[in-house]
Computed example of a mutant assay.
Amino acid sequence: MRSTPGQESSRHRDDGSLHHRRHPRGKKGGGKLMASVSTVTALSAVLLLAGCSQERDAVTKWPPATHNPQSVNAQQLGDAWPVKPQKGTVSCVKTHYSGFAIIFTAPDGKEYALNNVAHDEQGLPSADTLKASSKTTTMWRLRMFGMQVCSAERAKHMRSAPSPTAD
């Protein structure tokens, strides 16, 4: 039996008993779903607005990675700078097993892992230990810069490799 908004409807439950339900203002259980969607949308907007400054800096302040190792500083990345030291060096080291270890060297000379290869194969502590406690930024921007440094390193090796010859 179908009901119109504001009327009661009846339907059989699995155990055979009747279940009566009143549909207020034409909503058939969708009110909670719509409220949840609205809440999620509102929270997403707040989070996006809160992170706008760092996200804008992460997009607009993107220094070119041209050599390995390469210096990088907080001014270059703006609000996307995630660590306490205001500068450092990012390097890419080829490893025997897994490819490339991406390493951040702090001004005091201590090295930190920007990827799992540097942590697992080189035994370096994670750069997450350098993260400023008051910062809400993540390490992704510094890690992406490290990946660019590795790409510059791989490109250098590809240019110096002999080209294959046709037999």
Rank of each mutant, 00 (worst) to 15 (best):
C92A: 15
F104T: 07
P162C: 05
Q76A: 13
A50S: 02
S71K: 15
I103T: 12
N73G: 08
G109W: 14
L43H: 04
D79I: 01
L48T: 09
D120R: 12
E55H: 13
G146A: 03
L18T: 11
L18R: 11
R141Q: 06
H19F: 02
P125G: 08
R11E: 13
D57H: 14
T89K: 10
W140D: 14
A101V: 03
Q76W: 07
A80T: 02
M139Y: 08
P125N: 10
G30N: 11
R2W: 11
P5I: 07
K156P: 00
E8Y: 15
T60S: 10
L130M: 10
E121H: 03
S163G: 07
T66G: 07
V83Q: 07
P64Q: 07
G88S: 08
R159T: 12
R159G: 08
G51M: 14
L47Y: 13
D120M: 10
F145D: 04
L47F: 15
D14W: 08
A50Q: 02
S151N: 12
Q75C: 00
G31Y: 02
H157N: 06
L142A: 15
V83S: 05
E111I: 04
I102P: 01
A155Y: 09
A152N: 05
R13P: 02
T60A: 09
T105G: 06
R21D: 12
T66W: 01
D15A: 03
R154I: 12
I103W: 08
F145N: 04
V149L: 03
P24V: 07
N68M: 13
R2F: 13
A127E: 03
K32S: 05
P85N: 12
T39S: 09
A127F: 06
E55K: 09
L33N: 01
S151D: 12
G78S: 05
S3V: 12
Q54E: 12
G146Q: 00
A132I: 03
R141N: 03
S9V: 10
P164Q: 11
I102Y: 01
T129K: 02
M147D: 07
H12T: 14
P85S: 11
Q86R: 04
Q148H: 09
S151H: 06
L49G: 14
H20D: 08
G109F: 11
G99S: 05
T60W: 14
L130Q: 05
G88F: 10
A127G: 04
K94C: 10
T138L: 01
Q122K: 12
G30Y: 03
R2L: 15
P125I: 11
A50Y: 03
L124Y: 03
M158K: 11
S9A: 12
S91I: 08
Q122I: 09
K131L: 06
H119R: 10
H19G: 00
V83F: 04
G31L: 05
Q75S: 05
Q75L: 01
S163M: 06
E55T: 12
H23P: 00
K131W: 01
S10K: 07
F104D: 02
V117T: 11
R2S: 14
L48A: 11
S151W: 03
A65S: 00
S160R: 02
K110W: 04
T60G: 08
P164E: 14
A106N: 06
